[in-house]
Design a protein around this nucleic acid. Structure first.
Length: 449
RNA sequence: GUGGGAGUAGCUCAGCUGGUAGAGCGUCGGACUGUGGCUCCGAAUGUCGUGGGUUCAAAUCCCAUCUCCCACCCCA
C-alpha cells in the first residue's frame, strides 16, 4: 500500500502532523536488512547443503505449540518455561506458547507423524525463529534464530553422536568460522546422574559459605550449574569438586569412551570439559558446546547432546535421540566480526535508455537478460545520460547497456564496462551470450569479500 | 528480574557553566538534454527518545518512563 493510501485508510482523524506516531520493533526484536540478509541466506544455504550431504531432511514446524509440550520436555522448573516463554490463552482457553527452542517440537512431530515407521534413525533439521523473554544483550534477542538438527530413533551408537558433531564442525569449517572450540562432556543418564548430583550437592554444601549467593542458591536448585560459575573466586573450590566422569555407570562410561574414539577416527578435535553441563532437563550422556570468537560473554554458538528420555516424557515409546541447536544470530555475528560478510549485491547491468523508441527496446532487453539469470536495473523513467551512468555506479553495476536512438536504428547496442570505461558494440542476439560468458569467467559470487 | 552506560537529521557525531539546533557522510535536484566516479552550488528531513517538573527561558538541570548497548541471572 502506498503511503497516501495508508493515510486515507486510517483517516478517521485527519490531523496528519500532530497525531503522527512512531512505531518501533518490540524490545529484543530487530529487522534484518540487506546486505546482511545475503549473509543469512548464505549461512542457511550452506547448512542445507552440508546437512543434506549427511542425509538430513528439512522439517518445517509451527512456531507455537501448547504450553504443556514445553513444560513437559524442557522442565517446569527451568527459567525458560517458568519465566521466559511468551504464553497466551487461545480462545478455547488452551495455553499456547511461542516456541523457546525446537527440540520439543521436532520430537512431537516425530511421534505425531509416526516416523517410527521410517528407516531409523530419522535425521531432520529445521531453521527458524525462537522466542524467549530475556533481557537482550550481545548475541541475545527475544526473537532469535536457530539452526537445529536432530537424529531420532535408532541406536545409541557413539558413531551417531560423533557424526552429528562432525557435521556441525564441517558446517562451521565451510563457513570459515574463526576461533572454533568444541567442548564435550558426558552428563550420565537417569540412573547415574542423580547419584552424582547428590554427591556434588553434598560436597558443595560443605563449602557453601565460601560461595556467592547465586551459587548458594544453585546448590539446591541445580547443583550442576555451580560448575558453570564465572566468578573468579569460586574457581578453585569448583576444581576440587567431584568429577562426573568418575561417577558414570558402566553403560554411560562405555558410551562416552566410544564417542571420543569415534571423534578421533573422524579427525574432530575436541576438548573434554567436565564442567560443561546442560540447562535443560532432557539431556543425558554425551553433550557438547561449541564457542567461537567475536561474541562477547554469550559466546556459545552451538550446543547439543543426547536426550534419550524425552520421547517417553512426551508419551511416546523409549526412543534414542541426539541433536544440536546453533544460535544463528551469534553465528552471523561472529562471521561479521571476522569480516566474512559478502559484498553488497550490485547489478550486472544497468540499462541506460533514452527516448520512447529505446524504452520499448530496453524493456525487451531487460526481460531477456533477466531470463538469463542476470541482475538487471531498468530505470522507470528517462534520465539524463550522465545521471544514468551515475546511478549505475551507485548501484555497483558492472555494465551499462546504452540504448538510444543510434542503437535502436543500427541494431548495434553499446555495452560499457563501468570499471574501465571500455565500450563495445554488440548485436542484440549476441548480448546475452557475451554477458553470461563474462559472468562465468568472473564468478565472484561465492567467495566472501 | 538485577546492575552499569547511552539516546540530538537516514548514518556518525558536535553543541562550554541553561538563551530556543549544527557539521560531515548519505539522499534528492542543478552546474552537465549521448558518456559515470571528481568538483562546485542548492534542497529536504529533527516536536533534541517520551512525559512531567524547576526557570522569564531547557537539547542542557531534576524526576519518571521507554528503547538501545554491555554485564549478571538463566540459557543455546
Amino acid at each position: 500500500m502506498s503511503e497516501a493510501a495508508a493515510k486515507k485508510g486510517f483517516g478517521e482523524k485527519p490531523q496528519p502532523k500532530e497525531e503522527r506516531r512512531k512505531f518501533q520493533a518490540i524490545k529484543g526484536t530487530r529487522d534484518l536488512l540487506p546486505p546482511e540478509t545475503a549473509l543469512w541466506h548464505r549461512v542457511e544455504q550452506i547448512a542445507q547443503e552440508v546437512f543434506a550431504s549427511y542425509g538430513f531432511g528439512e522439517i518445517r514446524l509451527p512456531i507455537f505449540e501448547t504450553t504443556d509440550l514445553f513444560a513437559r520436555s524442557i522442565g517446569l522448573e527451568t527459567d525458560v518455561v517458568s519465566k521466559e516463554m511468551y504464553s497466551f490463552e487461545d480462545r478455547d482457553e488452551t495455553s499456547i506458547s511461542l516456541r523457546p527452542e525446537a527440540t520439543a517440537s521436532v520430537s512431537r512431530a516425530y511421534l505425531e507423524n509416526g516416523m517410527q515407521q521410517l528407516p531409523q534413525p530419522v535425521k531432520l533439521y529445521t531453521i527458524g525463529p525462537m522466542f524467549r523473554r530475556e533481557r537482550p544483550q550481545k548475541g541475545r534477542y527475544r526473537q532469535f534464530y536457530q539452526i537445529d538438527a536432530e537424529v531420532l530413533g535408532g541406536s545409541d551408537a557413539p558413531a551417531i553422536d560423533a557424526e552429528l558433531i562432525e557435521m556441525v564442525m564441517k558446517f562451521f569449517e565451510r563457513l570459515g568460522l574463526e576461533g572454533v572450540q568444541l567442548d564435550i562432556n558426558c552428563i550420565g543418564d537417569k540412573k547415574c546422574r542423580p547419584i552424582y548430583v547428590e554427591r556434588l550437592r553434598a560436597e558443595l554444601r560443605k563449602v557453601k559459605d565460601r560461595l556467592g549467593p547465586d551459587s548458594q542458591r544453585r546448590i539446591e536448585t541445580n547443583p550442576l550449574r555451580v560448575l558453570d560459575s564465572k566468578l573468579e573466586n569460586e574457581q578453585k573450590l569448583i576444581e576440587g569438586m567431584p568429577h562426573i566422569a568418575e561417577h558414570l555407570c558402566e553403560e554411560c562410561a562405555e558410551n562416552y569412551r566410544g564417542v571420543k574414539k569415534e571423534l578421533e577416527l573422524r579427525g574432530v578435535k575436541y576438548r573434554e570439559n567436565w564442567r560443561l553441563v546442560r540447562g535443560l532437563d532432557y539431556y543425558s550422556r554425551a553433550t557438547f558446546e561449541i564457542t567461537a570468537k567475536g561474541l562477547g560473554s554469550q559466546n556459545a554458538v552451538c550446543g547439543g547432546g543426547r536426550y534419550d528420555g524425552l520421547m517417553e516424557l512426551l508419551g511416546g515409546p523409549p526412543t534414542r535421540a541426539t541433536g544440536f541447536a546453533i544460535g544463528e544470530d551469534r553465528l552471523i555475528l561472529s562471521l561479521q566480526e571476522a569480516g566474512k560478510a559478502p559484498a553488497p549485491q550490485g547489478r550486472d547491468v544497468y540499462i541506460a535508455w533514452m527516448g520512447e523508441k529505446a524504452y520499448a527496446t530496453a524493456i525487451r532487453a531487460a526481460e531477456n537478460l533477466r531470463a538469463a539469470g542476470l541482475r538487471i536495473e531498468l530505470p522507470p523513467a528517462e534520465q539524463k545520460f550522465g545521471k544514468a551512468l551515475g546511478q549505475a555506479d551507485k548501484l555497483r553495476a558492472r555494465y551499462a547497456l546504452i540504448l538510444g536512438d543510434n542503437e535502436v536504428a543500427s541494431g548495434q547496442w553499446t555495452l560499457k564496462t563501468l570499471a574501465t570505461g571500455e565500450q563495445i558494440k554488440l548485436a542484440e542476439s549476441h548480448l546475452v551470450d557475451f554477458l553470461k560468458g563474462e559472468k562465468a569467467k568472473a564468478d565472484p559470487s561465492h567467495r566472501s569479500g
